Computed example of a mutant assay.
Amino acid sequence: MPVPEFVAALRSRIGHAPLPLNGVIAVVLDERDRVLLGRRSDTSDWALITGCLEPGEQPAEGARREVLEETGVTVEVERLLSIEALDLSVAPNGDQVYWLAIGFRCRAVGGDARVNDDESVEVGWFASDSMPPLPPHQTRCLALALAGDADPWFAAPASAVRPFIRSAP
């Protein structure tokens, strides 16, 4: 998988230490509401289309760019699905990443789905009732995309707002 230049520059300084990165998850639907998936070259697992945002890149633009780069499909980004801090992940080379994943529902508007870079070994359209297993955060994004115009999902804060308690004078 190609490493963005800015990540390579950071890694040259911090090695494999945990690095916070912003990423996008694109749930791409076609005119029949089939879902576009890619079989990852690093794990051979099927997954929604994902990628790392470039510094200063707007998340919706990053989702559009990643789908085009990885699959050759042009999309219109329809709406925000979720924002989620993922658990620490470790790449096969030992690099550690804390991803902030931003999910979007996208609609295919052009292009033919194909393997368009080295991040996937296969791409394909799947009916929502015959999906291969996906990671839990991707399953949540898919459910939100298929639910219509549901509100975006985010994890609830760990603790409720605490009332202000004034100490005695």
Rank of each mutant, 00 (worst) to 15 (best):
L37F: 04
A160I: 03
R79L: 02
L19F: 04
P133V: 01
G111M: 08
C106S: 04
L21H: 05
T139D: 03
E66V: 13
G72E: 06
V27Y: 01
R166S: 15
N22K: 12
V90H: 05
P152F: 05
P157Y: 03
G111T: 04
P157K: 06
L100T: 02
L53R: 07
P92F: 04
W125C: 00
L36Y: 12
A63P: 01
S159W: 07
L88R: 07
D87Y: 10
A26M: 01
D112V: 12
R39I: 02
Q138Y: 02
L144K: 00
E84T: 08
A47M: 03
V24I: 15
A8Y: 09
G62F: 03
L29C: 06
S120D: 12
E5G: 14
T43K: 13
A85Q: 06
R64S: 15
F6L: 08
L100D: 03
L37G: 01
D129R: 05
A158H: 09
F164N: 13
G15M: 13
F154A: 10
E66W: 02
E66F: 04
T43H: 14
L19R: 02
G56R: 12
G23R: 14
A26Q: 00
R140Q: 12
N116K: 12
G111Q: 06
V28Q: 01
P157C: 07
A160D: 07
G15E: 01
V7T: 02
A85I: 06
P18G: 05
V35C: 11
P136M: 11
N22T: 06
V161F: 11
P169E: 15
E122P: 13
G23L: 12
A155Y: 03
A47L: 04
P136Q: 07
